[in-house]
């Protein structure tokens, strides 16, 4: 029985994630539509519920084109490299106190390490397409993702110091009284900015900046391979929103002792708020410029994150300050 669950569990998670991606795309289009005075997709299925399904079917039956001068092996490989880490990181995510696939000691580190592999996929895709726009997009992507990984990791060090563990379960357990968004507010701000950047979303969507690079690194991709890049992007939204919930919003813990709802429901509610925030930001902000993006990461976010670490250590270790923490 346990062996069966071991193999079946990931398959169920994959289906859940695919379902999430399907409706996250629809929700994004709906939310942005409402914000812009439109009603969003409403033609395919009732309330547009089958719109994404139709889009996916369209992508699947599309002709699979590979540019003549592309590096064919890498061209085919890159969507896979981009997608697989996005799904693999979900293994350590504690969705509720029961639902988790692996409970490894260095869960947070695992997430950060695996998720950076996607950059390689994007870079390879941009290079293998043999297209100048794709190359520029890939270069931007590599620069951006690597730069923002550092403040992203630094911003959560404060939490790690407070909890004394890299295990995501322990982090959630430690938030039973107060969520880390309150004591770690500086870390939270740095984290949310870097995570939006890691997700390649507005205002940091430079790798695929539509108005400059047409579509950036996936400009030559079509059909199923393109779908894989999109899938990777939205699975990352799933993963990153889950991580935000776990690290800062208390995971499955119920606020104010409202324990009449099960932990997983609280998780979904908090998670949805984070996802909505991402959509909301996308509908509002213009795109930042590439050199400003770098400056912002190294000159603003990193020092702030480091300051946050020092502040946390002081609060935790200096005897008379720990009283307030």
């Amino acid at each position: 029985m346990n062996t069966l669950l071991l193999y079946l569990g990931p398959v169920i998670l994959l289906l859940i994630v695919l379902g999430f991606v399907t409706y996250a795309i629809l929700a994004e289009r709906k939310v942005i539509g409402w914000i812009q005075g439109r009603i969003g997709p409403n033609q395919v299925g009732p309330w547009g519920l089958l719109q994404t399904v139709a889009d996916i079917v369209k992508l699947l039956i599309k002709e699979d084109t590979i540019p003549k001068n592309a590096d064919k092996t890498l061209f085919k490989l890159s969507p896979i490299i981009a997608f697989v880490p996005a799904f693999v990181v979900l293994a350590v995510m504690p969705f509720s106190s029961q639902i988790q696939f692996t409970d490894i000691g260095v869960g947070l580190l695992y997430y950060m390490a695996i998720s950076s592999i996607t950059t390689i996929g994007i870079l390879i895709g941009g290079w293998a397409s043999n297209n100048k726009y794709a190359l520029l997009g890939g270069m931007r992507s590599a620069a951006q993702m690597i730069s923002y990984e550092i403040p992203l990791v630094m911003s959560v060090v404060g939490i790690v110091l407070t909890v004394g563990s890299l295990n995501l379960n322990d982090i959630v357990e430690a938030q039973q009284k107060t969520w880390f968004i309150f004591p770690q507010i500086i870390g939270f701000v740095v984290f949310i900015i870097s995570s939006v950047s890691e997700l390649n979303r507005t205002p940091f969507d430079l790798p695929e900046a539509e108005s400059e690079l047409v579509a950036g690194y996936h400009v030559e991709y079509s059909g199923f391979r393109f779908a894989f890049f999109m899938l990777a992007e939205y699975v990352y939204i799933f993963a990153m929103s889950s991580l935000t919930t776990v690290l800062f919003l208390g995971g499955w813990n119920a606020p104010f002792g409202f324990t009449f709802l099960p932990g997983i429901v609280w998780f979904i509610i908090k998670f949805s708020v984070v996802v909505f925030f991402l959509y909301w930001v996308r509908a509002t902000m213009p795109r930042i410029r590439v050199d400003q993006l770098m400056q912002f990461a190294w000159k603003v976010l990193l020092p702030v994150a480091l300051a946050n670490i020092i502040l946390t250590t002081l609060l935790k270790e200096v005897p008379f300050l720990t009283h307030y923490y």
Binding site: W34, Q36, G37, R38, I39, W280, A283, T284, M285
Partner: peptide
């Protein structure tokens, strides 16, 4: 800006 977009979200649709 975020406030403006949120306010527009509940305005009647124009399409």
């Amino acid at each position: 800006g975020l406030n403006v977009t949120l306010k527009n979200m509940v305005k009647p649709k124009v399409t």
